[in-house]
């Protein structure tokens, strides 16, 4: 059975100020459903709440109203084991590739961290790291390099590869190519399409680049003044 990630009536209000409190409504009554093998495109101007909605869906931020359902269950009510599984199966890839990796750890160490979390035997780490680089179309010479020593596109592919080790079913892609050059962007989009075809991943693609969203998404929504509407 295909899994789904669903947002129902999501609202988010930020409060600011210590004495004179003011409120800012970012999201109002947003409902959407991500399905495996499908890409939902989310567009909107800077500050419209796209990233906030992505974080709520990934369980990284709590909504002030509404629920996020994973496999039909409210993620706030999941048991610890179920929540850990949700965290692995719904992953977020951020815009800034270098910021996604620890600058003081080599690429090999960054990959080993995830393999350690997955309790993979140490004897397999080297082989699994090389497999990951091959899947991402990267050279094995990168293993000894640090994030500051490789390009933005290579960092972004390493960050994506680390996420894929967790075998997710859904990925929230927050402006995954907006910091990349044209040719690297084309490589990244092609890789994302291949991964979706091979693994049946479901994507929420957040971007202000309309060409990219139109190329990738099966359905497109626009976030405007806290509300979401389908793109005509």
């Amino acid at each position: 059975m295909l899994a789904s990630l669903k947002a129902v009536g999501i609202g988010k209000v930020y409060e600011s100020g210590l004495i004179f409190k003011s409120q800012k409504t970012i999201l109002q009554n947003i409902s959407l459903e991500l399905e495996e093998g499908q890409t939902l495109g989310l567009m909107g101007v800077s500050g419209s709440g796209k990233t906030t909605l992505g974080k709520i869906l990934a369980g990284l931020e709590r909504p002030t109203a509404g629920r996020v359902l994973f496999g039909g269950k409210d993620i706030q009510r999941l048991h610890k084991k179920e929540f850990t599984l949700f965290r692995r199966q719904v992953q977020m890839v951020f815009q800034d590739p270098e910021g996604s990796l620890n600058p003081r750890k080599s690429i090999e160490e960054a990959i080993h961290d995830v393999l350690g979390l997955l309790k993979i035997p140490k004897g397999e780490w080297r082989e699994r790291s090389l497999d990951l680089l091959e899947t991402m179309g990267l050279s094995d010479e990168l293993l000894c390099r640090y994030p500051g020593q490789i390009s933005g596109g290579q960092n972004q592919r390493v960050a994506l590869g680390r996420v894929l080790l967790l075998n997710p079913r859904f990925m929230i892609l927050d402006e995954p190519t907006s910091a990349l050059d044209l040719s690297v962007q084309a490589q990244m989009l092609s890789l994302l399409k291949d991964l979706q075809r091979d693994r049946g991943l479901g994507y929420l693609l957040i971007s202000h680049q309309s060409d990219v969203v139109k190329y990738m998404a099966h359905e497109i929504f626009i976030l405007e003044e806290g509300r979401m509407k389908p793109m005509s």
Binding site: S139, G153, L182, S183, Q185, A186, Q187, S190, Y215
Partner: peptide, 18 residues
């Protein structure tokens, strides 16, 4: 190859990296 990476050409990637 660079022009083929443009959206209107369907984001065709250049093999390899810089």
């Amino acid at each position: 190859a660079l022009l083929n990476c443009l959206p209107e050409k369907g984001f065709q990637p250049i093999p390899g990296s810089s």
